[in-house]
Amino acid sequence: MGDKGTFWLPEGASTLAGEVDALFYFVYWISVVIFVAVIAAMVYFMIRYRRRTPHDRPPVVHESKVLEVTWIVVPTILVLIVFTWGFKVFLKLGVAPPDAYEIQVVGQKWSWQFNYPNGVRSSELHVPVDRPVRLQMSSVDVLHSFYIPAFRVKQDVLPNRYTSIWFEATRADTFQVYCTEYCGTQHSGMLTKVIAHEQSAFETWLQESGIPDDASPAQRGALLYTQLGCQACHSLDGTRLTGPSFQGLYGSTHGLADGSSVEVDDNYLRESILEPSAKIVEGYANVMPASYGGLTEDELTALIAFIEEQQP
């Protein structure tokens, strides 16, 4: 990303970015011209007709109907042009080509999860270049919004409903993704990357990212840890994030919000993941999503094995 792009806009990297930018600059330059004209007139009058003595008796100026009509008609024409253009590009942004490659996106407090047609899950978005990609998005909790500045796309992500966007990346690079609908504490941390690969590299990535059959539970747990977005709230190095760190968690004994204490074993971990609000760790808020309730036995075992491994 860096410093490329223009003064106003970051460098575009999708097929439609150019069209949006052209429109942006068109409206921008019209605005600049109108603004400069207005301010120039103002400054000129201010100087030319400044008050010289308190006895100034300016002549009566009568209103000019021609002027009034001019500044009704000219702006009207301008805005109609801009409107037509704006809505044409908007339609293009809205309608994905039928052959687009489809990826499911799940937003949750405060991470993104991308599900590929072949079952691969990822917390970063990998896409092929030069191929339209359509994201089908939904949220498990509150509203979020999926925004990739370089592609000039943005769309709110809603619970209980699908929304979608599409784009076609034009070069292989890494781009920033933001959440732009306010969603609470870590709204500003709900970031991820889009990684655009050349076609072949993308295929390779897709193959390699499936969970290998021969992986140990802890290895699979490590993958799930990033794919499900646990890392947004739980560190592995003892850092305090929104949730407690996993470092040294297993086997420890710690206090709960209700004053009691608990020994962290398999069953407690299981409950903590499936039903986070059942026992709240002392000093933390009850904000862990309940959406992990649907994890399979297999996935749970893997995660617990992974957490068990995190000893300092």
Partner: peptide, 28 residues
């Protein structure tokens, strides 16, 4: 006078974000 200066900027950028495709990028 400073109103005329500032409000005109505010208003014209209001029109900019009223442009559908541009607002997709600028919203929020």
């Amino acid at each position: 006078l400073s109103f005329l200066f500032l409000f005109t900027i505010g208003g014209l950028t209001g029109v900019m974000v009223g442009v559908l495709a541009v607002d997709v990028h600028l919203h929020d």
